[in-house]
C-alpha cells in the first residue's frame, strides 16, 4: 500500500520535473531570439526543413479533406434542399477546426518527429556536448532557430491546408455535383467572418505550432542518448503533440466560440 503510494508520488514528481525542465528549456529558447536576428540564414534553413518539406503532405491532405467534405456535405445538405450552403459548411469546418487541427497533427507527425529524432541523435552522437565545449550554447544555436521556424511555418501551413481544402470542396461541389457557383461563394462570404472565423483559426494554428515544436524539441533534448531512447522520444513527440493539439483545440474553441 505504502509502496504503491510512493510509486505514485515518484510518477508525480517525475512529471513535475519534466514540466519544469520543459519550461526552463522554453525560456532558454526564447532568450536566444536576439541571437537570431544577425543570422537569418539559420532560420531560413530551418523553415526549409520544417515548413517547406511539409508542404506536400499538407497540401495533398488539405485537398482531399476538402473534397471529402464537399461530397459528404452535399449528400447531407441536399436532403434538406440546402446544398447552396455547401460552401459555408466546407469553409467553416476547415477554417475553424480542420485546418488548424489536422495541419497540426500532420505537422507533429512530419516535422515534429523529424525534429525530435534530429535533436536526439545530435545528443546521442555528442554533437550538443561538442557545441557546448566549443563555447556555443546548443539551446541558442540549435533549438532557437528550429522553434521559431515552427512558430512561423505552422500558421502558413494551416492557411494552405484550409485554402486548398476549400478549393477541393469547390471542385467536388461545383464541378462534380453541380452546386451553383455563385451561391457557393456568396453564401460562404456572407457567413464566414474574418475575425470570428479566420483570425481565430489562425490564432489556433499559432498556438498549435508553438506547442508542437516545443514538445518535439523538448523530447529530443531530453531524450536518453541511445538509439532506443531516441526512438521512444520520437514516439512520445507524436503522441504528446497529438493529445496536446486536440485538448487545446477544445479549450480554445470553448474560449473563442463559446460566447
Amino acid at each position: 500500500m505504502l509502496n504503491s503510494l510512493a510509486r505514485l508520488g515518484q510518477v508525480g514528481i517525475g512529471i513535475l520535473e519534466r514540466l519544469g525542465r520543459g519550461h526552463l528549456l522554453l525560456l532558454g529558447i526564447c532568450r536566444g531570439l536576439p541571437d537570431l536576428f544577425p543570422r537569418p540564414g539559420l532560420l531560413t534553413k530551418q523553415i526549409y526543413s520544417v515548413g517547406v518539406l511539409s508542404i506536400l503532405i499538407i497540401s495533398v491532405s488539405g485537398l482531399f479533406v476538402g473534397m471529402v467534405l464537399g461530397l459528404q456535405g452535399y449528400y447531407i445538405l441536399s436532403q434538406f434542399g440546402a446544398e447552396q450552403t455547401l460552401g459555408v459548411m466546407v469553409a467553416a469546418s476547415l477554417v475553424r477546426e480542420l485546418g488548424p487541427v489536422v495541419a497540426a497533427l500532420l505537422f507533429a507527425g512530419r516535422a515534429g518527429s523529424a525534429l525530435t529524432a534530429e535533436i536526439g541523435l545530435m545528443k546521442a552522437t555528442e554533437q550538443l556536448s561538442g557545441l557546448e565545449m566549443m563555447a556555443v550554447d546548443p539551446i541558442r544555436r540549435v533549438l532557437t532557430p528550429r522553434f521559431f521556424a515552427g512558430f512561423i511555418s505552422m500558421p502558413l501551413l494551416a492557411a494552405l491546408f484550409s485554402a486548398l481544402g476549400i478549393i477541393g470542396g469547390y471542385f467536388v461541389g461545383v464541378g462534380l455535383l453541380g452546386v451553383d457557383d455563385g451561391a457557393f461563394w456568396a453564401q460562404m462570404q456572407a457567413k464566414i467572418d474574418l475575425h470570428e472565423d479566420v483570425f481565430n483559426g489562425a490564432i489556433k494554428s499559432v498556438v498549435f505550432g508553438i506547442v508542437c515544436t516545443w514538445i518535439a524539441l523538448f523530447q529530443g533534448f531530453d531524450a536518453i542518448p541511445t538509439s532506443e531512447g531516441v526512438s521512444r522520444a520520437t514516439t512520445r513527440t507524436v503522441v504528446h503533440s497529438s493529445l496536446a493539439v486536440l485538448g487545446l483545440d477544445f479549450i480554445l474553441t470553448a474560449l473563442m466560440f463559446g460566447d
Binding site: 552522437t125 554533437q127 561538442g130 566549443m134
Partner: peptide, 19 residues
C-alpha cells in the same frame, strides 16, 4: 565559463562533428 571554454578543446570519442 563560455569564455574559458574557448580556450579548452575537447575531442569526443565519436568526433561529434556536426553532420
Amino acid at each position: 565559463l563560455y569564455r574559458l571554454r574557448m580556450r579548452m578543446g575537447m575531442l569526443f570519442q565519436s568526433g561529434a562533428l556536426l553532420t
